[in-house]
Amino acid sequence: MTANPMIDEWYPVGILTELSPEGRDTMLMGEPITVACDAAGDPVVTAGDGRSLPVRARYGHAWTSLGTPAKELFDIPEADQPGRRLVDVGVVRVKCSPLRAVENFLDIAHFPFVHTDILGAEPNTEVQRYEVQIREEVDEVWATKVKFYQPQAAKSAEGGITTDYMYRVPAPTVSILYKTCPPRPGEWDVITLFVQPLAEDLCEVWPWMALFDDQTPMTDLIHFQQMIFLQDRSILENQLPRLLPLDPGMEIPTRADLTSVAYRRWLKRHGFTYGAQLVAA
């Protein structure tokens, strides 16, 4: 049995405001865990064999790890910026590889076809050239200078705009996107996908947002993001092969897939292969 480096990473396992003393039984990479809170309301995570797991309470969610994380939980400086509204979107279970959930979130080319008239629309389907790098100093995947025409980029957007995006992968099952903030030019809205791997082909997804939007009611913000993610869900559950292939075979990536290529390369370099297929596909 080879070591699984993903054991030592941080994973989301619940919304902080929903924790209860009785706890919720769930799974993390095949291991049963219980996520509860203590008298002070702080998260307590217990593994199936009774051992206490490390916890962090950050970005609206409880985080834990089955191993011994060498790195502190990644930083999202915008989360502490005054004036942002923090949105716990709620958990959605998806029968797909946790890595595929992240990869789909990094893709722009599907917008006109899956999120039609919202995040994209025909005939504006071209993904213009953008930049991708693995930032060695922070060990994260970054895509920058991404531009896409969107009919309704956010709940706060009126009419179509060309939206700027940046994508960031700070942990194997976490993706953070920064996008044009319609009411506050110069700032970025932050939309994240926190993925809890239950098994190699099953995950729970906890989207979370930190937005500048004083107008839209909270429920509308939640519904907008749930609508977008649930449009993706039916696609994700039908992707083949079920596990994410890390080596190219039959697939022919295009220029629009640069972020996905870098993500897969980064996963492979670290041995982050839980949910990955090591045979070329």
Partner: peptide, 17 residues
């Protein structure tokens, strides 16, 4: 109109070009 999980028929749309 569609809802998440029920996609519209893209193939009924006229070709863009």
């Amino acid at each position: 109109i569609e809802m998440p999980g029920i996609h519209r028929l893209h193939d009924l749309k006229p070709e863009p070009g």
